Structures are given as C-alpha cells and as structure tokens.
Amino acid sequence: MAAGGDHGSPDSYRSPLASRYASPEMCFVFSDRYKFRTWRQLWLWLAEAEQTLGLPITDEQIQEMKSNLENIDFKMAAEEEKRLRHDVMAHVHTFGHCCPKAAGIIHLGATSCYVGDNTDLIILRNALDLLLPKLARVISRLADFAKERASLPTLGFTHFQPAQLTTVGKRCCLWIQDLCMDLQNLKRVRDDLRFRGVKGTTGTQASFLQLFEGDDHKVEQLDKMVTEKAGFKRAFIITGQTYTRKVDIEVLSVLASLGASVHKICTDIRLLANLKEMEEPFEKQQIGSSAMPYKRNPMRSERCCSLARHLMTLVMDPLQTASVQWFERTLDDSANRRICLAEAFLTADTILNTLQNISEGLVVYPKVIERRIRQELPFMATENIIMAMVKAGGSRQDCHEKIRVLSQQAASVVKQEGGDNDLIERIQVDAYFSPIHSQLDHLLDPSSFTGRASQQVQRFLEEEVYPLLKPYESVMKVKAELCL
C-alpha cells in the first residue's frame, strides 16, 4: 500500500493539533497551500530580480507567473513527485505547466533550498508574528487579574506546605514575570531571523556568478533584492546548502521555554482548584465526569500541561538535527523538520489560546482563602504575639514557653481530632496574655502579614508589564474561544 493518505478522510490519521486544537490561522501558515504558494512567490521574486539585473526574462513571463501564483494543481504535483521522487522539481514542473512561456526560467540558477529553506524562514517569521500578540493578550488578562487582587491576602506555599502570606495578585505576578520573559525572547528570536537568500547549491553562489558572467556586484544585488522582497532586513552571508540548523534550535528553545512557563502556571491553577481557592472557567453544560456528576475538573489547565510537556520535548529534535548536518548538509534534517517545526508552533498556539481562555474567566473564592488563612495564621502570628507581650512588660522566655504549650495543644486538636485551630481562643482565655487581649485582632490582621506584596504588584505592572504590552494595544480586544 502506498504511503500517505487522504487526510480529510475519517479513515486516515490526522494530527489532533490540526484537527482538534490549533487555530485556523496557525494551521494555514503550515498548510501545503501556504507552503507551495510561497515557493511560487519566491520563484517570481527571483525572476523579477534577475530581470532587473539584466537576464533575458520578459515582462510577459513575469506576468504569467504572477497570474498563476494561486493556480496550484495539487493532484498534478503529487503525481509528479511520485514520478520524480523530488518535491521541488515536482512543483517546478507543475508551475511550468500553467506558465508555459515562463517554464524555462522558473528556478533559474537556484537549488531546492532556495524555495525550501527560504519558505521555512518566512513561515517561522509569520508563525512567530501570530504567537506574539496571543502571548501579549494572556499577559494582559493576567495583569488585569493581578491588579484587581493585588491586596487580597492568601496563604503562600513553599514545598506545598503553608508559608508566609502573600497576595493573590502577587502570586499571579510570578506567572506574568515568566511570560514577559517569554514574550521578550519570542520577539528577540523573531527579529534575529535572517533570510537564507540566493546562495546556490553549497552556499557559494557559483551558479549565479556564472549567470551574471562573473559580476560579483550583481550577485550581491540579486541576494539583497530577493531578501528585501521577502520582507527581511538581512540575509546570511555564510550558508551551506541550507541555512544553519542552529536557527531551528533557537526558535524551538524559546517555544519550549514558553511551554515550561505555561505548565507551571496551569499546575498552580490545578492545585488551587483542589484547594477550592480558584477555578478555571466551567461552562453551564460542561460535564466533569461521566460517573461523578459533582466533579469540576480543571480540564483546560490539564490540557495545557499535557501539550506543554510535548512542546518542551520537541527542542531535542533540532538539537540532534543540527549535530548531524555533515559538511554542507545531509538530508537527516528533512523529514524531522517537516514534523517538529509545525508541531512546535501548533502546540504553542494551542496552549496560548487555551491559557487566554482560562485567564479571561478565572474565578476566585475569597471566603475559602480566608478560612485557610484562619487555619494557619495563628501559628504564624506567634512571633508577633511574643513581641507584643514583651512590649507590655512580659518575659520573652516565659511567653515563648506559654505559646509553645498552647500551640501544641491547638495542633493536637487540628491533627488528632480534625478540629479547627483554636490557638487564639486559648490565648484569649489565658490570664497571662490579658495585657494584649485587646491587640489580638490587630495582630491577626492578614494584611499585616503580606509585606509589600501589593506595592510590588503595582510597581511591576507599571514599570515592566504595561510598557512591554504597549506595541500590542491594537490587538488586545480579541477574545479566545474554545470549541473543545
């Protein structure tokens, strides 16, 4: 049975990233139509530049190519590739079939990587351009969430054990800070992308030097003109047959890092959902379990974690691919890159769409948070109580021993009897502590235990987050809708 299948058929496997999760716009960027249309555009740009620099290419040939950029006979191309065992030459023939007058000058002087690699770089750039505003929107939604809850005390956790208090907004800023680093890295790697350009079979530009009869300047002009037509500021000066596969490492490393950030955020949300302090959106008709109707599973956060793990592992592909590119190139890269580049971007696209949807509907339960604080705060307040007693004339050592005994009794009630923490009640009825009984409410005010959390939130948002989001103001209103 021949390899390949009808990918629109229910009898043929289709990647869930495309069929179930990723956005239509990201799927289109990695589609065959987008790819092969870009090949034709690159052939047109090459012909236009070659004509401008004096090669015998007519206006009629150029116009014929322009008129057929979208006229792609995919069936013919597939048949040609089956016959020739070469995808680029299959599309040269297919393009030439609908451009008979231009057929002889299509791909003039070029090698397969002229269309293959340059198209990949265009796709990487455009895919990054799709991700950047999506990530900015996630940051914006979380920034709104953090600002609104900047002063809401909550129990902090280290080692997932109760620690000092923080605020809900401050905790959210930990998430935002990681995503801001990801946004900066995505922008950097996007701006650092260079075009492969017009380089020939081993990167020496020998074929173009021959076409222009040894004119170095025209060869350099050709490279520059096509690079500018493709919208790049610069091209690699040095290439082998391909652009260095280190570029793929750079791009997928940034995406993998984004995956790590999203995994951490969504894990926190899942843990908070278990504590009943916070939940992701839950639709009115949504079913959490087929057997347990009360369940409210954090399905979206779980999906993000599941896909983020996949995204983090994909960076190993370009690392290994770059390491086995012998001399000017081997074909070890080809099949692998067809999979890992598309999957990385479709996965990143999915987790950003999902995280935006989550961040637009996060639900906080202040009463649950308050109750958990009441359970733990008495123990945390013991040092403040000791200091207040010393100020009232008591002995630190005597007070410490009193607190120690009462704390152990209260802990026994919590752990052995399943009761509430009654340390404060014990202190309130103990005559030894009568000098500070009137101060206990103040000493137990949760806001006095959150330090500068709310001020940190305000400063972080104003100095770091809002300036970073400013270039994306025009796209901030787009909502994230999930079908599944």
Rank of each mutant, 00 (worst) to 15 (best):
A150D: 08
A308P: 04
F327I: 07
I72M: 12
F345Y: 08
D192R: 09
C304K: 05
Q325N: 15
D191C: 10
E48L: 06
E417C: 10
A18G: 15
I237Y: 12
E80V: 09
E473K: 15
D191K: 07
N297G: 02
L84S: 06
Q285L: 13
V226I: 07
E64A: 13
R14S: 15
D120M: 07
R372M: 05
R245T: 01
T52G: 14
N118T: 01
I385K: 04
S261Q: 03
K187F: 09
A146H: 00
H217A: 12
L461Y: 05
R426G: 07
D216P: 09
Y243W: 05
K229P: 03
A77R: 02
L121D: 01
P281H: 13
L314P: 04
L124D: 11
T244C: 14
E464F: 06
G54T: 05
C305F: 01
F74I: 15
M89Q: 03
G259W: 01
E473L: 15
T58N: 12
L174D: 11
L258E: 04
Q408G: 15
R194E: 02
S261A: 10
L406P: 03
I139E: 05
R404T: 06
Y13I: 12
L174H: 12
Y365S: 09
A110S: 10
I427G: 04
E148F: 12
Y472R: 08
H437S: 11
K391F: 00
N297T: 02
Q61A: 11
P435V: 07
P293C: 05
I373N: 06
S151A: 14
Q458P: 08
Q416K: 10
T239R: 01
E64M: 09
H263D: 00
G104S: 14
R270A: 01
E213W: 12
D223S: 07
Q63S: 11
I373A: 08
L55V: 11
Q285P: 11
H107E: 00
A206E: 05
G200K: 00
F30Q: 09
C27A: 15
M292D: 00
S412G: 12
F379C: 03
D117V: 01
A3F: 11
V138K: 05
L131C: 13
R125M: 13
L468N: 14
G259E: 01
R374I: 02
T242E: 07
A206Y: 01
E343G: 13
N384H: 15
S301M: 13
V478F: 12
P298Y: 01
D191R: 08
K134L: 13
V315M: 14
E370N: 15
F145A: 06
Q456V: 05
A342F: 08
R459T: 13
V363I: 14
L314K: 10
V478L: 15
D216R: 07
